[in-house]
């Protein structure tokens, strides 16, 4: 179609035919943009019902243990059993340098809760730790069974609630930094019937494996090892060199 109108941008207004043409399409474009935004937004995977109480500080008291990752063993009201809450500090860092000197001691500290289902982690404020003296020696169960598990290695801090999603490939770099910085690595095993299960990863001697699992983070892996249960914590002892990519 021949168009005799000529648009000049620096003029106060354009020719009516051209401007009418553009106006209709500009609004159509905005509607198209809204449609794209709506489709992209609604197509996201559901988010986990985990939570990080950012900015909310609470007092905690319990016994410091290292499995080898630092945990706060907390008495359960009305129960003989204890809950074991993993400990971390601000950023992509482990809490070891602040907790190791007080291993086995009862402590009082302040921090923010990170929780998912029944699993809890505390981002503690290092300056708030108070030594309350030696605690009761811990009772550890023996390794119970050999298991083979398919899953994905993630960092416990993000998975338990700091980030959503705290798993899969887009989160790989973050998980790598967290684990490299000392946050406990866990094997995340998904179960279609229920919530995912996670296992703290240690080597066959029970030592931390942070530096040895970095190449496997966020990838589908199969790990065979000995499963040890410490109350509500599941610990998987396995040699990182024998992890298998799927």
């Amino acid at each position: 179609m021949r168009n005799d109108e000529f648009f000049i941008g620096w003029q106060a207004s354009g020719p009516p035919g051209v401007m009418g043409f553009v106006k209709v399409r500009a609004f159509a474009l905005i509607l198209g943009a809204l449609l794209v935004a709506a489709v992209a937004m609604t197509s996201q995977r559901p988010f986990a019902s985990s939570n990080f109480e950012f900015g909310v500080e609470r007092p905690f008291e319990g016994r410091l243990e290292h499995v080898p990752y630092p945990v706060l063993s907390v008495d359960r009201p009305g129960s003989e059993e204890e809950s074991h809450w993993l400990l971390t500090v601000f950023g992509k860092r482990g809490a070891d340098e602040f907790t190791l000197p007080l291993d086995g001691h009862r402590v009082a500290l302040r921090g923010s809760l990170i929780h998912r289902d029944n699993a809890v982690m505390v981002e503690l404020l290092p300056d708030s730790i108070k030594d309350l003296g030696p605690g009761t020696p811990r009772q550890r169960s023996a390794a119970t069974s050999v298991v083979t598990l398919d899953g994905e290695i993630v960092d416990s801090k993000c998975f338990l609630g700091l980030m959503k999603p705290g798993q899969l490939k887009p989160h790989r770099a973050c998980a790598t930094r967290c684990i490299s910085g000392g946050v406990p690595p866990v094997l995340l095993v998904r179960d279609e019937q229920g919530p995912p299960t996670y296992y703290l990863l240690v080597d066959e001697d029970g030592s931390a494996v942070n530096d040895r699992v970095l190449d496997y983070v966020a990838e589908p892996v199969t790990i065979t090892g000995r499963l040890e249960e410490l109350g509500d914590l599941r610990i998987l002892r396995a040699n990182p060199e024998k992890y298998l990519r799927r």
Binding site: F90, G91, K92, R93, M163, H171, A173, C174, R177, C178, S180, G181, G182
Partner: peptide, 9 residues
């Protein structure tokens, strides 16, 4: 900030 900051590198 979210994925790379506050880490060990």
């Amino acid at each position: 900030l979210q994925f790379h900051a506050f880490g060990d590198v």
